[in-house]
Amino acid sequence: MTTEVFGKHKWGMVVDVDRCTGCQACVLACQVENNVPLNTQERYERARGMAWIRVERYWEGEFPDVKARFIPILCQHCENAPCEPVCPVFATYHNPEGMNVQIYNRCVGTRYCANGCPYIVRFFNYWEPVWPESFRNHLNPDVTVRSRGIMEKCSFCMQRIRRGVRNAAKENRELEDGEIQTACQQACPTDALVFGDIDPDNNRTNPGRAYSMINDDRAYTLLPRLNTDPNVIYLAKVDPDREGGAGGH
């Protein structure tokens, strides 16, 4: 086998909320890897900040037994994504690898997809992105720089996936589990993010780390009532104070 085979994998991510410390290393790594424009104070004040992955803080319990929790939220790559059918020009669609992808050059900027997204992980370029001159040569050459007027969102580091698959094909071998790492996963100090193939129909000898985690007792998905069927699976926070130990989100 020498050509790149497409659609063989179904990518997903497991986020162990119990391990997340809310350190935001993933946010920074993503920003650098994916040429996400710099967020100035003015942008945040106008609620236009961009972060393909963000760490949300939420409170659990009633005062005084209240606890701060962290949960990283990124594009859930829903199998049944509300953002996909509404795009009039197929700029966003579901690809055979189980990912919800955004094609920048096809986007006309209706922002309809962003309305549909219940996780609010889609971002619109209100302005042409600018970087300080000293940053210009630091941009990732493998990632398109998005111009103004289009949507963008987490791509599961598509450039890394493509490179990994290509390398395996070049060396005429199967892709190894863990060979492809997303930028956020690479940066996570507590190993809370695990990216990998989660296709249940894939006959594999080695199940892979992400795949072995999705059937965990603690596994859940966000907003299940909307039936979006995300490919990002969360593992619930373990709360020793609580009966049973595991607290849901």
Binding site: R48, G109, A114, F124, Y126, R148, G149
Partner: peptide, 11 residues
């Protein structure tokens, strides 16, 4: 560009 409007995220 649409930056001149008051639109934000998620509106």
């Amino acid at each position: 560009g649409l930056g001149v409007t008051g639109l934000s995220r998620p509106v």
